[in-house]
């Protein structure tokens, strides 16, 4: 039983992390917190991919000095790592743009609470 669960528990934790992020976007009214929740989502997805790249008993995907080339199971899958490097960078870039917008919003409206901002904006 435990071994059966062990292979999947990572996915469950990741799913919970993801939903925490989604809940954060829905439930908080502070725009900055929403942006942070967005980052939680992106972290969950990164973990999901990295989890897919794991293999039992494998090491980092860097060829060991003197090792025989081509022992597939000796190294972790490099593809998810590559993809997630990209995803991390995308997340950072989005956060940067989001912060820039928040900066401007805060200067104009003096608040980052969504209801306040919307109320002011619709006038």
């Amino acid at each position: 039983m435990l071994t059966a669960v062990a292979g999947y528990i990572n996915f469950w934790l990741i799913a919970i992390l993801l939903l925490v992020g989604v809940y954060g976007i829905i439930a908080t009214e502070n725009l900055l917190k929403k942006l942070m929740a967005l980052n939680v989502i992106s972290v969950a997805i990164i973990l999901f991919y990295l989890n897919l790249g794991q293999k039992a008993g494998s090491t980092v995907p860097i060829l060991l000095p003197g090792a025989e080339v081509g022992v597939v199971n000796a190294y972790a899958n490099p593809l998810p790592h590559t993809l997630m490097l990209t995803a991390i960078v995308v997340g950072v870039a989005t956060t940067g743009v989001g912060l820039a917008m928040l900066y401007k919003i805060y200067h104009r409206y003096g608040s980052l609470e969504e209801p306040d901002v919307l109320k002011e904006m619709r006038q």
Partner: peptide, 12 residues
């Protein structure tokens, strides 16, 4: 500034 609010919500 209105567009910024709209854009931020769009971004989220």
């Amino acid at each position: 500034h209105r567009a910024t609010v709209a854009a931020f919500r769009y971004l989220l």
